[in-house]
């Protein structure tokens, strides 16, 4: 049975991503960093395993997001610039199908990247643990959920890239704007907590206070997907927080995709 065009575009986007030399280089870099966990964990005298988990998860997150950003850049901007997209958009399919197909490919690829790096990280952690005595067990369930959180961040940022690409005519702008959203998204929760604690009002002008609150509601709150602490210290994961984060991520991503497809419908392919 023939696949729906959305999935065909997704499949070929995934295939293109796998053959992308930049993606391959980033994966190799990731492998190198994860192997270096063995060295870096030994720097800590008291908590080598915790340091190893922290280092591994941070590496997986940064590399997954970098792959998403670079691939997201290639997905639309470069494809429109090089006119490769004309080929698909000249077929009897809507632009929504095209865009969603691209997003499907991005989802698959970032899932593969997270899984590959996650497995490498797990291997590295096992080696670290083998060399240590009297260390607590690794909370593999939490480690797994932390990776799902990283994947959700990459999907959300992928949707952000698509939204900006649907708006901008140059390739660089969406890239920079997505990086901006990534940085803001990681800190909005911390800033809001700071304001809610009443510490900010004494030092910050009121309009800045409003600005921060507005930003909190406009920009994605990426700290919701950060389950690293639970994985590092083997803390009990609150199911509600995980469920809330997943629902938030899914709904936010869907809203971004709806906006991106709506804008993309009206964009001239020049």
């Amino acid at each position: 049975m023939a696949l729906h065009p959305t999935f065909m575009i997704g499949y070929y986007t995934f295939k293109g991503g796998l053959r992308d030399r930049l993606v391959q280089s980033l994966l190799l870099t990731g492998l190198f960093f994860l192997l270096s966990t063995l060295v870096f964990s030994s720097f800590s005298m008291r908590q080598p395993l915790e340091v190893a988990i922290n280092y591994s998860l941070a590496t997986v997150q940064i590399l997954t997001i970098l792959v998403t950003l670079f691939l997201g850049l290639n997905l639309l901007s470069r494809e429109i610039e090089s006119r490769a997209g004309y080929l698909v958009m000249g077929q009897p399919i809507s632009r929504t199908v095209y865009l969603l197909g691209k997003f499907c490919g991005l989802c698959l690829l970032s899932l593969l990247v997270v899984s590959f790096l996650g497995l490498c990280a797990a291997g590295g952690l096992l080696l670290v643990k083998l060399g240590l005595k009297d260390t607590p067990a690794i909370a593999w369930g939490n480690f797994f959920v932390a990776h799902i959180g990283i994947w959700m961040i990459s999907l959300l940022l992928g949707a952000v890239t698509l939204l900006f690409t649907a708006l901008a005519t140059s390739a660089v702008l969406p890239f920079l704007m997505t990086i901006g959203v990534w940085f803001i998204g990681q800190s909005t929760q911390a800033v809001k907590n700071y304001l809610e604690a009443g510490l900010g009002e004494q030092q910050m002008p009121r309009f800045l206070n409003w600005l921060v609150t507005g930003s909190f509601y406009c920009f994605p709150n990426l700290s919701l997907f950060d389950f690293k602490t639970y994985a590092i210290y083997g803390l009990a994961l609150p199911p509600l927080a995980v469920g809330y984060a997943m629902a938030y991520g899914t709904i936010y991503t869907m809203i971004l995709l709806v906006l991106a497809t709506t804008l993309f419908q009206h964009r001239d392919m020049t």
Partner: peptide, 24 residues
Amino acid sequence: SEHPHFYDFLTPVELLRLLGAMRQ
């Protein structure tokens, strides 16, 4: 299109398979 540009990581067979799928 003028100066066509295709997904250069594909082979002609793969490209035509993709386009055929687009056209169901």
